[in-house]
Computed example of a mutant assay.
Amino acid sequence: MPHIDYYLTVVSPFCYLAGTRPAEVAAKHGATITYKPVDAVALFGRTGGVPLAQRHPSRQAYRLAEIPRQAKMLGMPITVKPAHFPTNPAPAGYAIIAAQNAGGGDLAALVAGLSRACWAEEKDVAEDSVIKGCLEAAGFDPALADRGLLAGAETYGTNLEEAVNRGVFGLPFFITDDGAPFWGQDRIDHLDAHLGGRL
């Protein structure tokens, strides 16, 4: 059975724009998927990238043009400068890890819901109430936000080390079990083609 490791952060607009498509591609090909929340700022620092605020103005300007363009292509609402960005993505990452360990709900919906909260609903995904609401909406026990925080933090750190060691440098990033890497929500079609044997 094919497998996809999906490295992400809910505070990336491009992870938001990925929506539930990674899970849909996985289901199409009978593949499993593991969600691996990562500290994006730490990842950039380890792999030659720089945080958004430190990027050259031309890069920042292009990002502001590209995000709404991609959102329009996908028919998704987006706020280019959300009220609660930047914010701490770690608590949401811990909740995704806890939900994945617990099972019983829809992980794709949870990841999409947390990302949508930031990028379309003007909510702070570092807030406990927002995280619990997203957990509940995706069919998970909201109390997962309060449990397993130490394990979540440990896995969050492990995900970062693993990502660096596997050549991940941006998010979203997908790696198949045969080692094929795909960076960006605009490469999900390529991931689909690879799993289908066309790439």
Rank of each mutant, 00 (worst) to 15 (best):
Asp124His: 07
His194Lys: 11
Leu17Asn: 10
Ile175Pro: 13
Pro142Cys: 00
Val11Arg: 10
Leu149Pro: 00
Ala151Cys: 02
Arg69Ile: 03
Gly148Lys: 03
Gly103Ala: 04
His190Ile: 00
Tyr62Ile: 13
Ile78Thr: 11
Val41Ile: 15
Leu43Trp: 08
Ala65Cys: 12
Lys123Ala: 11
Ala163Trp: 09
Ser115Val: 00
Met1Cys: 03
Trp183Phe: 15
Gly196Gln: 10
Ala31Trp: 09
Leu135Glu: 02
Asp189His: 11
Ala99Gln: 04
Arg46Ala: 15
Ile188Asp: 08
Ala65Gln: 15
Asp192Pro: 12
Asp124Pro: 10
Pro172His: 11
Arg147Lys: 14
Ala92Arg: 05
Pro172Glu: 13
Leu64Gly: 04
Asn101Cys: 01
Leu52Lys: 04
Pro13Gly: 06
Glu127Gln: 15
Leu110Ser: 00
Asp146Lys: 11
Ile78Arg: 03
Val10Leu: 14
Ala23Trp: 14
Arg116Cys: 03
Ser58Gly: 03
Gly48Ala: 07
Leu74Pro: 05
Pro51Met: 07
Ala109His: 04
Pro68Glu: 13
Ile131Cys: 05
His190Lys: 09
Gly105His: 08
Glu136Trp: 02
Thr87Gly: 11
Arg63Cys: 05
Met73Asn: 08
Phe140Leu: 02
Ala23Asp: 11
Ala145Pro: 05
Pro68Val: 11
Glu24Cys: 06
Phe85Val: 01
Ala151Arg: 13
Gly157Ser: 10
Gly133Met: 00
Ala95Tyr: 06
Tyr16Met: 01
Arg198Glu: 13
Ser12Ala: 06
Tyr94Gln: 05
Ala163Asp: 10
Ala112Met: 05
Gly103Asp: 03
Pro22Thr: 09
Ala99Arg: 09
Leu160Val: 03
Gly30Trp: 09
Ala26Ser: 10
Tyr94Gly: 01
Asn101Phe: 00
Ile33Tyr: 13
Tyr94Lys: 08
Arg69Asn: 12
His29Met: 03
Gly196Arg: 12
Phe174Trp: 08
Thr20Cys: 01
Pro57Ala: 09
Ala65Val: 14
Arg198Cys: 00
Asp146Ile: 02
Gln100Val: 00
Pro2Leu: 06
Glu121His: 12
Val164Asn: 13
Gly133Tyr: 01
Pro77Tyr: 08
Met73Glu: 09
Thr176His: 13
Phe174Thr: 05
His29Trp: 12
Gly48Thr: 06
Ala120Val: 06
Leu160Gln: 09
Ala31Asp: 04
Pro172Gly: 12
Asp178Ala: 06
Leu149Asp: 01
Leu114Trp: 06
Gly45Tyr: 05
